[in-house]
Design a protein around this nucleic acid. Structure first.
Lengths: 341, 341
DNA sequence: TTGAAAGCGCTAACAG
DNA sequence: CTGTTAGCGCTTTCAA
């Protein structure tokens, strides 16, 4: 049975119908009598028929696939995003194909309009700016496209308001005045991987402090590489400079975690002497008792999918730029009293 | 020009030849006169012809694509592996499609023989045991398959000798006798994600100590969750138990890094009072001055690809089980003198 | 070295 | 509700 060579014709013969009828059953058309339907299904079963995807794609011109281009996979943000996108796509019988831009070579291959990622019905690009990615900023293939986590005037975009998130963090810390520091991540220019989110977060943070009448001195912005000990270096820098009560805003939880670590090793009671905020609400942030800013990633993913499907249906609809609002997650690291951990 | 609707027929007409000739040019057949070849190429150029991948796949039955199923993407091991595989595949005009098993839902979808990953000419599976992955251990689609980083008697496999790696680490540490500990990562049974590498590393390590006449007491094996603070917990445990000179073998660099961190915070001179070994040789291991065990990941990836291509050519060739040997990378964390960092 | 012709497996008009 | 028919774009014999 089923050597993979059973075609719709075999099924039709076996069921005593014509191929198009089998096709109708296969594609769930309503106008098939219950009787023939079961007969066809039985034939499919006994012959072990497996539809030939290549033929279907060829014939219909649709792959039922959406390509998702992103910098990497493995961080919490992307895993949650992918799952959200995946789940939503499945509701419409679509599959997601993942294309993490792990190396320069891959990027170069994706400049070819015939490359694998463009063999899809639509394109989702997360955290990457087409202007930096492709020569002339033009996506090689002419596919319906939605950008996630990055703004661009020429595409449908789904973003989170990072400025607002930073503002929320700033507002929150400003309620408990202290010498305040921000730990930033180096974002190189002209890199494909520069979405500017960290810059935005800092900007909002500064604004909040300004509005609260506690402007952040420029020298209190510590910029570090996003490396295996960036956060620790920043923490040491801060503690060298300042002894009294401190507020620290780290532009992502990963950084905040390292800062927290360093603080704890110095027996500084987090939440009292030092208050610390992160950004992202990583799953372990709660365990760390880390105050942070939560992004509605699942909602963004689902929205992006819906938007893409709409764009696929109506290529000429006007552009949508959806902005999601982040939320404050207040925990021990900015409350009084308990130590964080 | 080139609305994506230009076919090989248009090109043929424009060049004054017949479609099959265009096809011959497209596929680099030798028996085409230089004159017609250039004429065809010019036609392709001016019309902006882009070959229709779907049609080609349909016609030839080949996708020129290999699917790579792995637990995740983003760790150094997988990034290096993917790049190696990618590069080797490109030499043979193949593309790699990545399928990280990020969620249970994805796994379930991949149980369907019609799922996207099986729409390929071959399958590479890294670090995942088909027996745990699929019901009955049978890969849903009947594709040429090579397993990487995991052994299985029924498939071509490419592995690294983790037992040997652990042995090398053990031998190395045994040269400087001290109270010795091993930090293990919890590997749950019946999980798709249990490849057993950590177990193998520990086994080799124990054997080396045994052979050196310094058997490792069972209670000196510290098992931790692979979480954000597993290494630190282990380090504290070790330091609570023991004061004198210590040898620590962490079953991966990530863990070793956290152990090292905790040690440094206690001002324990790494390489003197405490000697520490990791496993994997992460890119930052050298910066940390961490002694570790290096895996020939690039060689493994390239070999796996070659093996897969052979299997695709000759489905009936006998199974290959290639085992690569790891190498010791000795650095400051196990040398005398300098502190690690 | 090139042309003619057939057909891969499936779907989508259209007709009945 | 079901059958007839045509053809998607490309490759691959086979013949010239």
């Amino acid at each position: 049975m089923g050597q993979g060579k059973v075609t719709i014709l075999d099924v039709a013969k076996h069921a005593g119908v014509v191929p198009s009828t089998v096709s109708r059953v296969l594609n769930g058309y309503p106008d098939v009598s219950e009787e023939t339907r079961t007969r066809v299904l039985k034939a499919i079963e006994t012959l072990g028929y497996k539809p030939n995807r290549a033929a279907r794609v060829f014939r219909t011109g649709r792959t039922q696939t959406v390509s998702l281009i992103l910098p990497m996979v493995g961080t919490d943000f992307y895993i949650r995003l992918i799952n959200a996108i995946d789940g939503e796509l499945a509701r419409y019988d679509y599959d997601a194909a993942l294309f993490p831009l792990l190396s320069q070579r891959r990027l170069e291959r994706y400049r070819d309009p015939g490359a694998l990622p463009y063999h899809a019905d639509g394109l989702l690009i997360s955290s990457l700016n087409p202007d930096h990615l492709f020569p002339g900023g033009k996506i090689p293939a002419d596919l319906p496209t939605v950008l996630i986590d990055i703004y661009h005037p020429a595409y449908d975009t789904v973003t989170v308001d990072n400025v607002k998130g930073g503002y929320l963090a700033g507002e929150h810390l400003a309620e408990r005045p202290a010498e305040t520091f921000a730990v930033m991540v180096e974002e190189r220019f002209n890199t494909p991987f520069a979405s500017g989110v960290f810059r935005d977060r800092l900007q909002g943070f500064k604004q909040a402090l300004l509005d609260a009448g506690q402007p952040l001195p420029e020298e209190n912005v510590i910029t570090v590489e996003f490396s295996w000990d960036g956060g620790r270096i920043a923490a040491r820098e801060i503690l060298n400079r300042c002894r009294g009560p401190i507020n620290v805003f780290a532009s992502c939880d990963l950084l905040a975690r390292d800062v927290m670590d360093e603080l704890r090793h110095r027996d500084l009671p987090i939440g009292r002497e030092v208050r610390l905020m992160g950004f992202d609400d990583q799953p372990w942030a709660e365990d760390c008792n880390l105050s942070t800013v939560r992004q509605p990633i699942e909602a963004m993913g689902a929205f992006a999918v819906k938007l893409l499907l709409k764009r696929m249906k109506e290529p000429d609809r006007k552009l949508t730029h959806k902005v999601f609002e982040p939320q404050l997650a207040v925990r021990g690291s900015t409350k009084g009293g308990e130590s964080g951990g």
